[in-house]
Design a protein around this nucleic acid. Structure first.
Lengths: 226, 226
DNA sequence: AAGAAACGAATTGTCGACATTATTGACGAT
DNA sequence: ATCGTCAATAATGTCGACAATTCGTTTCTT
């Protein structure tokens, strides 16, 4: 009998807390009191403590000795830097993926593109965003470069997207879709140069959108309550 | 009175354990029993536990639920991957550094180069290796890209173990010195393209040397006792 | 009234005990 | 003899209690 995939309390607390931070339920600079968080998450203080250590190492919270933990504020500058690193590494990964992608990989990607198109037509930004993540991750897998994948995955790019609401830019999803299609075509024709170029162009656009979001944020209040 | 910089037991345990792993006192795949490690380090089990979580996130140990921790074995394949990521990111950093390096930065780098030359003439490989690290770190600083620097710094820690053997290749230090001089010249003339190219070439050489070291390692016994 | 010192509430850091889980080795059935 | 089962053991996971530290407030002195 296939055994169930059980989540230990520790992993569970880590996952929940991370999700809560990334999704914005704890806003930047907010103090994370261990006892309080523990009750909110329905976990023990030990588990929360372990989760905080991990998240500190990961860069999502800062952990000062005897002074507790707080959600790390990602500055505008840092957000741009993260996207820059992401562009560099994902460019490399796209190049590799172009030469290594197997038919099955390409088929999967094709499928994601199709679904993306549906979401765009339905105006489902959130669904599109999830597919976006999926698309990139499949490329990482096809690139067969676990180390680079791990590094890119460890960047806080997911949190950024929420903090700045980059999807809300009018017409962004349509352009994004076209950019993804361009990447896919390059991969399909196993053209490494083209793949890297397309990926970098895509992420340059994302960077532009991010700058736009930062500008817009400068006028309007920043974090709204859930 | 300026207050002393006190190390909390937790930081202390982390530092000690990390040092022990990197220096090879625990060899790859060795199990790290919490109680045992705690007594060896003169720390409590709690501190060791926190340290293990951090080191797991950092990639130096693997931490399986209910099965404890062991020193992570870095495969040859992975070592090569790490160097590849490093080359990509350091290339980007060198490019940035070329356009942003201030006179003081260049002077520091020049100084490092001078000292490197001395070490080569004296045949002091270890001293050279330390200067090598210093050289790269100064470039990161000049690039003014904390995020990328942090990522690369995290990678380096894993590669450290391999660093010892790579210097042993005959004539390697001389070539390495020339490569560093090339990088420096590109930075001095504020030529981004040249700087990135020189850095990538340098790290490509390092990669070659690493491959050579891996080949050699395949014949001789691997980890020698302290 | 202003500043310094001391107190107190809240929170983190550490330890020991206990529950839970994997692993090893022995035992017995086939 | 081999495989599967089951107990014994060792290690990890979790919890609660207590010590140590920080920060805000009050109180005393000048």
């Amino acid at each position: 009998m296939a055994r169930m995939k059980i989540e230990t309390p520790r992993q569970d607390a880590y996952r929940k807390l991370r999700e809560a931070i990334v999704s914005g339920r704890f806003h930047p600079n907010e103090r994370l009191v261990e006892a309080s968080v523990a009750t909110q998450l329905g976990a023990g203080r030990t588990a929360v403590r372990a989760a905080l250590v991990r998240l500190d190492q990961e860069g999502l919270v800062v952990l000062e000795p005897n002074r507790g933990a707080r959600v790390r504020l990602i500055s505008d500058q840092e957000a741009l830097e993260i996207e820059e690193v992401r562009a560099t590494l994902e460019g490399m990964l796209a190049r590799r993926a172009a030469t290594r992608a197997k038919p099955a990989d390409l088929q999967d990607l094709q499928q994601v593109i199709v679904e993306m198109r549906s979401r765009v037509e339905e105006g489902d930004s959130i669904g599109y965003s999830e597919l976006n993540v999926s698309f990139h991750q499949r490329i990482w897998a096809a690139a067969e470069h676990p180390t680079a994948s791990r590094v890119v995955g460890g960047l806080k790019s997911q949190g950024i997207r929420f903090q700045y609401q980059t999807i809300l830019r009018p017409g962004r999803t349509e352009r994004s879709l076209r950019e993804h299609e361009a990447i896919f075509n390059a991969l399909k024709s196993h053209d490494g140069d083209a793949a890297e170029a397309a990926m970098r162009e895509h992420l340059a656009e994302v960077l532009e959108t991010l700058k736009w979001a930062i500008e817009g944020q400068r006028r309007t209040p920043r974090w709204l309550p859930g």
